[in-house]
């Protein structure tokens, strides 16, 4: 089995780097999938490969990497980011202090010319500027060199070339002003220093804004208890939760968080599970009940046995899933990375063409200066930072936002697709209804009494795992009916069950099963029909090949289902009910909640085919189910939504897991998806517009007509602004509120 390795990557400065790092990782033997997240500066690698090999490969490509192991990395990562943030600010300050006075005095015309004494002054400034380039801008130059060696180019390449050209050109003028015409004698030291100041400042601000996007994970990690009280050799002791072993006994006192998943073995309590299930009312739990890590014990003190620890707890799995989803890339993001990978080399070509165009077609004394300045400006303005950040940053915020609403999104593709659905298929039991059916009425024939029929039926059904079967067993228990011995039990998938009781064959199931076995149920038909119209599910009972009666089970509709389905209609979705239940019951439920299309009497194994047939009509289909018998259909659908109450982790089979068990979450998930995709598109549009206007402007296309030329410093500021705008726009998603009517 392949495993996922998470690495933190440093030295990635721009979108182009993502492609280089991914390439470096994929070239390692055993790697199946590599996903580099530029916004988070991490890589998730799947495959049979050691972390050391990956780190070596990444280092060879000119970047640095370290393995991330779990929740505890988060604080380390934060400290490292804080230090980096301060370093960037210091670098920005130093270059600003050198650049700003030069800029101001230069504008005021108070700087000397290039005569003998002036040149000495300029030489000093040139040396000061090279200190700026080394201290504040050194990382751009080393980054550019490293990626150039690997046949890649990125933001560093552009900045290094831009500022390097500015410095070199200025130094040439200082050394020998006679080389260029008098009009063109202008030093660009201040431009180099200020560009570096602005870009460093931009990165620092961007980092700060980025930190806010990972709050969802921090909040989830905050749910984990730090210590647990275990009982070892009869003595209670507090230990770190990492040290808790499987099957150890733990004590939980009132008000404490439960440390790991387990089963209560002594005592009882009410437990606040709202963080997992969204259910605000505390749940009563007693011996034999399951408790989940991260939930809060409200009242009593109890003992429980640890059943899932460390990475296996429900909470850890949720954290892992959100983390993986946040760093995953949707189709749109992969496309952008490809574009960014060829973008920078293309810009290099454009800059050379710009230079040649000025040299060949420019007129006047200043041609050389203009050629150099425009080339420099093209290099500076064309950074694809905004392009690289556009997708991952929005995905991070979107996935995190969804997690806050109890919606766990598996990956970026699911997030991108959810907003494009046009049909939603809903399973009935457990999705539209509570999924806790109970016996509502019974009809008996011949000499059977209700209690006797219930006794026989419950005895047979105790072997079945179907929710309807369970309701019959519970009804018998409620009436204190003792169960009989059953032989040769077998389940007929989607139809019913059969066995032998007291030497007589007994059969419980739907109409089709009775017809198949040639059992006459005409005496029960009228009653069955009337019950199905009330959205009840009648199950026929036959003993000794003769109809004995029917047991009718009703499953209450969730209070918010109707409202949620109305909201689905409001956003233009077609809603289809897909159930194994009989046509009349399904119709009755559909009528009650306002569903337009019903596909009933579908066997579990055929549900996926029904999904496929809707897809064949060209519809993009979302399937909502409770994740157990619906698993194939969930997998077949374009987006599978599993309604799970957290404990039964249906997380594995679906693209999106709805922890809150409400259909409203489906609409919320779709709304978040739409908002995120819209946000990504805005970001990409912004980045695209910025570059398509910025580059020609920088190249000086407006100069011959209107005399407008972009100052390289303005280009530096614009570049910093473009990334900052993307990050701020993505942060806007954090204010998103999907549900209006809760």
């Amino acid at each position: 089995m392949s495993t996922a390795t998470r690495l933190s990557i440093s030295g990635m400065s721009c979108a182009g780097c993502v492609a280089s790092v991914e390439q470096a990782i994929v070239s390692v033997d055993g790697v199946l999938i590599a996903n580099v997240n530029f916004a988070e500066h991490t890589a998730t690698v799947e495959g049979e490969v050691s972390a050391e090999k990956l780190v070596d490969a990444i280092r060879a490509a000119g970047y640095d990497a370290a393995q991330l192991t779990g929740a505890e990395d988060e604080s380390e990562k934060e400290a490292a980011e804080m230090a980096h943030y301060r370093r960037l600010l210091k670098k920005a300050a130093f270059s600003g202090i050198v650049g700003a006075p030069l800029f101001i005095f230069g504008m005021a015309g108070m700087l000397p010319g290039f005569d003998a004494s002036g040149r000495l002054f300029w030489l000093g400034i040139g040396l000061l500027t090279i200190m700026v380039l080394v201290y504040s801008g050194g990382h751009f130059f080393t980054g550019a060199w490293k990626s150039a060696k690997n046949h890649n180019a990125n933001m560093d390449t552009l900045i290094a070339l831009g500022t390097g050209t500015a410095w070199l050109y200025s130094m040439v003028i200082v050394a020998n002003p006679a080389l260029v015409p008098a009009m063109a004698q202008h030093a660009y030291f201040e431009a180099a220093a200020i560009i570096i100041a602005l870009i460093n400042l931009g990165s620092a601000l961007e980092m700060r804004a980025r930190g806010k996007t990972s709050e969802a994970i921090k909040r989830l990690i905050g749910l984990q208890a730090k210590t647990a009280r275990v009982i070892r050799d009869g003595v209670e002791q507090d230990i770190a939760i990492e040290e808790v072993g499987l099957d150890e006994t733990l004590r939980v006192r009132p008000g404490e968080r439960i440390a790991v998943d387990g089963i209560i073995i002594d005592g009882h309590s009410s437990i606040d599970e709202s963080m997992i299930s969204g259910e605000p009312i505390p749940v009563q739990k007693a011996v034999g009940d399951e408790v989940i890590a991260g939930t809060i014990n409200k009242m009593g003190s109890f003992l429980f046995q640890a059943k899932r620890i460390g990475k296996d707890t429900v909470l850890s799995q949720i954290i892992e899933m959100v983390r993986t989803a946040q760093s995953s890339k949707p189709a749109i993001g992969r496309l952008v990375d490809k574009v960014a990978g060829v973008f920078v080399p293309s810009v290099l070509i454009v800059s050379v063409l710009t230079f040649l165009a000025w040299i060949n077609f420019g007129t006047g004394d200043q041609v050389t200066t203009l050629a150099i300045v425009t080339t420099m400006t093209v290099l500076i303005i064309a950074c694809p930072c905004a392009l690289g950040l556009a997708t991952p940053i929005s995905i991070m915020v979107g996935v995190g936002k969804a997690a806050e609403f109890g919606i766990l999104i598996r990956n970026g593709d699911a997030l991108q697709l959810a907003g494009k659905l046009d049909t939603v298929i809903l399973d009935k039991t457990g999705t539209i209804t509570e999924g806790r059916p109970s016996v509502a009425s019974m009809v008996v024939l011949d000499n059977w009494s209700e209690d006797q029929l219930l006794q026989w039926s419950a005895s047979l059904e105790q072997g079945s795992e179907h929710p309807l079967a369970e309701s019959i067993v519970i009804a018998a228990k409620d009436k204190n009916i003792s169960l009989l011995k059953v032989a040769q039990f077998s389940a007929i998938a989607g139809h019913g069950v059969e066995a032998i009781i007291e030497d007589k064959p007994i059969l419980i199931g739907n109409r089709k099963l009775m017809h198949d076995r040639n059992i006459d149920i005409s005496a029960l038909e009228d009653a069955a029909h009337a019950l199905t119209l009330q959205a009840q599910t009648p199950m026929f009972v036959a003993v000794d090949d003769k109809a004995a009666g029917l047991i009718s089970v009703a499953d209450a509709i969730k209070p918010d289902s109707m409202d949620a389905i109305q909201r689905m209609h409001d956003i233009g979705l077609k809603v289809v009910l897909l159930t194994g239940d009989n046509q009349e019951t399904a119709n009755a439920v559909a009528r009650q909640v306002g569903i337009d299309e019903v596909i009933a009497e579908v066997l579990p194994q055929d549900k996926a085919d029904k999904v496929a047939s809707l897809q064949a009509r060209g519809e993009r289909v979302g399937m909502v189910g409770d994740g157990i018998n619906d698993a194939p259909a969930l997998a077949r659908a374009d987006v599978g939504f599993a309604i799970g109450s957290g404990t039964d982790v249906a997380i594995e089979s679906a693209d999106i897991t709805l922890m809150r068990g409400s259909l409203n979450s489906v609409v919320d998930a779709i709304a978040i998806s739409k908002a995120t995709v819209r946000n990504i598109k805005q970001n990409l549009f912004g980045a695209f517009i910025y570059n398509s206007f910025g580059i020609p402007l920088a190249a000086g296309v407006l100069y011959p007509l209107m005399g407008i030329l972009l100052n390289p410093m303005i280009a530096g500021a614009a570049m910093a602004m473009s990334s900052l705008t993307v990050v701020s726009n993505a942060n806007r998603l954090r204010l998103f509120k999907p549900t209006e009517n809760k």
Binding site: A148, H151, A153, P345, I349, V352, F355, L356, I359, N360
Partner: peptide, 30 residues
Amino acid sequence: MMQTLIINLAGVALIAFIVWWFWVFKSDKG
């Protein structure tokens, strides 16, 4: 005139180098 010609030739050579380094040579490497 001569100077412009040299600059142009150098520019074209530079473009050719960029194309070779970032595309041709890179895909040769695999």
